[in-house]
Amino acid sequence: MNYLFYISSVVAIVATIMVITRYHPVHALLYLVVSFLAVSMIFLSLGAPFVAILEIILYAGAIIVLFIFVVMMLNIGSEAAAQEKQWIKTQTWAGPTILTAILLAELLVLMIRGDSTTITDQSVPIKQISFSLYKEYIIAVELVGFLLMAGIVGAAHIGRHKKRYLHRFLREKEERESVKL
């Protein structure tokens, strides 16, 4: 199982690097699917099959599909990729990358310093997760319900393809300005 973990870790990291370096959105999304699948494998090796399945269904399935839909609807393909190519230059990514590298170094030092034990793939039964979810976390579950509700309503409201002007004052202002011109 250890090998499974190391192999999938390497795959996840490499895939993620590819995600953030691609110019074309669709390519990036495909690598993102790979990354998610690799993380799902890590979950399996940690003895968490339930979340591994969820990772595949929800992340690799639903969320990625959502992204792809939007990319399709906006019709940003090779044109956006060309633009991205222009935008990404050494001076734009060098600074943030160095900063983030410092952060990573700090995190790693802190982790290695802390106590470390061996994790086996001793899986936690799904029954126990369910009990825990609907017993001590019941309020959190209900709050998540609210959150999803708000997400749906918000997305539906914001995404509505509506009139050009958000408020009639803005329209009147623009009309006045156009008259002046």
């Binding site: 993620t16 690097i17 995600v19 991205e84 990404i88 983030t100 790693l108």
Partner: peptide, 21 residues
């Protein structure tokens, strides 16, 4: 591994200009 993935995501947020990325 989690930390590495997190920082990679952070680099992405910081360097990309396209909202989708």
């Amino acid at each position: 591994v989690a930390a590495i993935l997190f920082t990679l995501g952070l680099i992405g947020v910081l360097t990309r200009r396209n909202v989708i990325f």
